[in-house]
Design a protein around this nucleic acid. Structure first.
Length: 249
DNA sequence: GCGACAG
DNA sequence: ATCTTGTCGC
């Protein structure tokens, strides 16, 4: 099965892996922004998400929003673009399905509403919580050279670990009591590549937060908690609601 | 070979 | 991502 220039899955993933590793050299996994040292300076936070048409795989809608964290997360910028998805989703390579559309939204914002350029982006997907430590959030961060945080709803990394680690994860999930409770997620090299974070008192499932680009993990956690009225942080939640509503009408 | 698989 | 309603609880 192939869908990109007649290349086989093997050829495609080989190419994708090369690009992930190449771009990863530019990844910054510590705080570089002034607001990270003084969270009172954090005001504009961006969110991006893409929804797809359930009955027509050639239709999608990408929504870009910027919220004001200092004004109850009011939406100060919003742009929607209907898209024609080119590549199908391959686990571990989400960026190659979505990245071009996200970068286009970034460029549109820069051109039409640069005064709303967010200080940090929240992306629906993983950053370094990824088999090659370079998920969609990191990919986007490097390409647009901005601070980015990855927020995933499912623990994709669990597909690459032993049953014993899965059991541990299940136990640790049950130990999460209140909002802000968390436990680290470690890779086979004992590096902490993400965290399971409880963001809602009445939801049993945590979200999986990881460094995208130009933020530390601690800063990423602080920002996500700051943005949560519900389980999913507002910037991503709003982008998801809006894009889904538009693709279905 | 079989099943699992961020969105 | 998407297929899918009601229902229990605050």
């Amino acid at each position: 099965m192939s869908d990109s220039c007649g290349k086989s899955d093997e050829e495609l993933t080989e190419e994708f892996i090369r690009l992930q590793l190449e771009l990863r050299d530019k990844l910054v996994v510590c705080d570089t922004e002034d607001w990270a040292l003084d969270m009172n300076k954090l005001e504009l936070i961006g969110g991006l998400d893409i929804s797809y048409d359930k009955s027509d795989s050639s239709r999608g809608c990408v929504t870009c929003v910027v919220l004001n964290a200092k004004n109850d997360f009011e939406i100060v910028y919003k742009n929607n673009t209907f898209i024609e998805p080119i590549n199908r989703y391959i686990a571990g390579f989400l960026a190659f399905r979505e990245i071009s559309f996200l970068v286009k939204e970034y460029d549109t914002l820069k051109q039409n509403g640069s005064q709303f350029m967010p200080q940090v982006w929240l992306i629906d997907g993983n950053g370094v919580l990824h088999p090659r430590k370079f998920g969609l959030a990191s990919h986007f961060g490097v390409l647009v050279d901005s601070a980015v945080i990855g927020v995933a709803k499912n623990p994709y990394y669990l597909n690459f670990v032993d049953q014993s680690v899965k059991d541990d994860h299940k136990r640790q999930k049950l130990s999460l009591g209140k909002v802000g409770d968390q436990f680290p997620i470690t890779n086979s090299s004992d590096e902490v590549i993400g965290v399971a974070l409880k963001t809602s008192s009445d939801c049993k499932n945590p979200v999986y937060v990881s460094i995208g680009h130009k933020v530390s993990l601690n800063t990423a956690i602080t920002v996500v908690l700051k943005c949560c009225k519900y389980r999913v942080p507002e910037p991503v939640r709003q982008a998801d609601i809006i894009s889904r509503q538009l693709i279905n009408q």
